[in-house]
Design a protein around this nucleic acid. Structure first.
Lengths: 184, 184
DNA sequence: ATACTAAAGCAAAGATATTGCTTTTAGCTC
DNA sequence: GAGCTAAAAGCAATATCTTTGCTTTAGTAT
């Protein structure tokens, strides 16, 4: 169930979808994460709570949907003129983004929401960006996309989600260095 | 807040803690994960709902506590006679355990529960086991414990949590191979 | 335009969460 | 070990959230 598409996606449904998403994001920015409730969101969005329950199911599912939407915006990874430096720059940017309070929150929400449905959003986001970089430099065979996922993305995400530690920029560099073939 | 230790840990408090944990595990085994509620657990544990709310806060926190307890039981990694094979055997066993339906559920519960408090439990479990193996073979310098966490544990967990894919045994082997120094 | 029906609104009913107060009892002191 | 103190459980009333049947609104097709 991606972004909960109604059978009738136009007009009012679309407006309500936007309005509810906006309300969630505004309330999240407001910081009161704890007392975020469906009725509160509904009031802010100018909607009846039952509308939200009927369309999204419950609060976690709604939050997962909002978070997933965030990860669906694919930015273009910075172009630096070489594969190595593109990868390095992206690694830093990605880690910065994901380890920020907002990033961590979105990751959690995506994981918590509907069982497994959206969790791909987060993985997909990283994968899409890595693939973009790889396709930009077809002659560079090493490291492969799966290797980058396993040995750069995975350690970064593991640190953020499980260890709760924010790796230093030097740590990110070390991970990238380890991936790149030795220069001669 | 580990295993929600009351100021008065003996007698009745301990009994209730056990009884509630047991009720949760029984109901989880019963499979009806969806309609698991605090009142239901309370009824099964022979306890008043307000007791659970007062001690654990809410359902996710309780589930996180139960899951964290599971990860606190430290088994001894299998001894195979060499560092390489100990690491390989553990990698397989760990992956097997964590990618099982039960394992995935516990991981989720730990992540969802109290914000960051318990999430270490899961990481701590893996780390403790890797450290045990490392200490068993002090002369083996490579790979280091952090390297194992970054390049074996992290990819396994990333696959399970984000990609929702269960890696094959061959994939686990490949990760271990990649870590071990080249034989001459 | 009109008809058809998905989706929203409304409101009552049902379930869960919170809270003030009372009762029980673990842990301490004598 | 008997008594004291306060932490934690029980109880019950209240507040809040969730679900659901029915009505109304408004996209979409004809």
């Amino acid at each position: 169930m991606a972004t909960k598409t109604p059978v009738r996606p136009g007009g009012r449904s679309a407006r309500i979808q936007q309005s509810v998403h906006l309300a969630v994001n505004e309330l999240l920015d407001g910081g009161n994460r704890e007392d975020l409730t469906v009725p509160l969101i509904a009031a802010r969005a100018g909607v009846t709570p039952s509308t939200i329950y009927r369309r999204w199911g419950d609060l976690p599912a709604l939050l997962a949907d909002v978070a997933a939407q965030y990860f669906e915006t694919d930015e273009v990874p910075q172009e630096t003129g070489a594969f190595d430096s593109d990868l390095r720059a992206w690694g830093h940017q990605f880690h910065e983004e994901m380890s920020s309070p907002t990033g961590v929150q979105y990751i959690r929400d995506v994981l918590v929401g509907d069982q497994g449905g959206h969790s791909g959003a987060c993985a997909g986001y990283a994968l899409a960006q890595v693939e973009q970089i790889a396709q930009r430099w077809p002659q560079a065979k090493e490291p492969s996309v799966p290797e980058i996922m396993d040995h750069l993305v995975a350690p970064l995400m593991y640190g953020i989600v499980f260890a709760g530690n924010r790796l230093s920029a030097a740590d990110v560099d070390a991970l990238v260095d380890r991936l790149l073939p030795p220069e001669d």
